[in-house]
């Protein structure tokens, strides 16, 4: 037990890094994903095609590769080439990648809303933007809670990929101690931390689902 307390310091620091990556990615990728989804369903063929290509690229290549590319290769790309420090590079990669997944969830959700809802709003005089904001998106939110919950929990665990940029997230911190002390206890503590984080998320999403259960449809 005293050993667990002893290793708690570095593990908590690692958890801090993990949570930062998680929260920043979530907060930035959700609106970006919604924007991409709205462009895709907007009916502008060229823009929609670009978004499609983007989603294909982001979902079709490993997140780790994208991270390595942004950190190591981006500085050498002409025009857009910038050298990002490790943390911003990781965030950019995570946001770009997760926005693609969120965009697909939003798109499927928006397209599942019956055409009658748009027509009902239209004949009452609501504009397209008002229809989206007041009628369609609130209903989409309810329908996408299950896939969003899944994707969000995956994100918590994916944050461990930032070890490739030599950042000390929870898992890398644990591994460091394991290699130093020749004991697997840090892994077990790290697992407990991950479970705790995903439990909080699961409960949060369950609460939202209960809140939206007041209406059917």
């Amino acid at each position: 037990m005293s050993y667990v307390i002893e290793i708690m310091g570095p593990l908590l620091e690692g958890t801090g890094v993990t949570l930062q990556v998680f929260l920043l990615t979530f907060v930035l990728a959700v609106p970006l994903g919604l924007g991409l989804a709205l462009i895709r369903i907007s009916g502008f063929a060229v823009l929609g095609g670009l978004v499609n290509g983007y989603i294909w690229l982001m979902r079709g290549t490993p997140l780790m590769l994208q991270m390595l590319f942004i950190y190591f290769a981006l500085p050498f790309v002409p025009v857009i080439g910038v050298r990002l420090p490790d943390f911003p590079a990781a965030i950019v990669a995570f946001v770009l990648n997760y926005a693609a997944y969120f965009a697909e969830i939003f798109r499927a959700g928006i397209q599942s809303i019956d055409r009658g809802q748009y027509e009902g709003a239209r004949v009452l005089g609501l504009s397209y933007a008002q229809t989206m904001r007041r009628i369609v998106l609130p209903q989409v939110l309810k329908r996408i809670l299950p896939p969003m919950s899944n994707e969000t929990i995956t994100l918590v665990k994916d944050t461990s990929l930032i070890y490739v940029l030599a950042m000390n997230d929870l898992l890398r911190a644990a591994r460091g101690i394991v290699q130093r002390d020749f004991t697997t206890t840090p892994f077990i503590v790290a697992a407990a931390f991950y479970l705790l984080m995903t439990l909080v998320l699961t409960l949060g999403f369950q609460r939202l689902e209960r809140k939206y259960a007041v209406y059917d449809g």
Binding site: G116, Q117, E119, G120, V123, L124, I135, P138, Q139, Y215
Partner: peptide
């Protein structure tokens, strides 16, 4: 105003 066969009420 228009009234539809399938109501098109807003369920939320």
């Amino acid at each position: 105003g228009m009234v539809f066969q399938h109501f098109n009420l807003f369920p939320h």
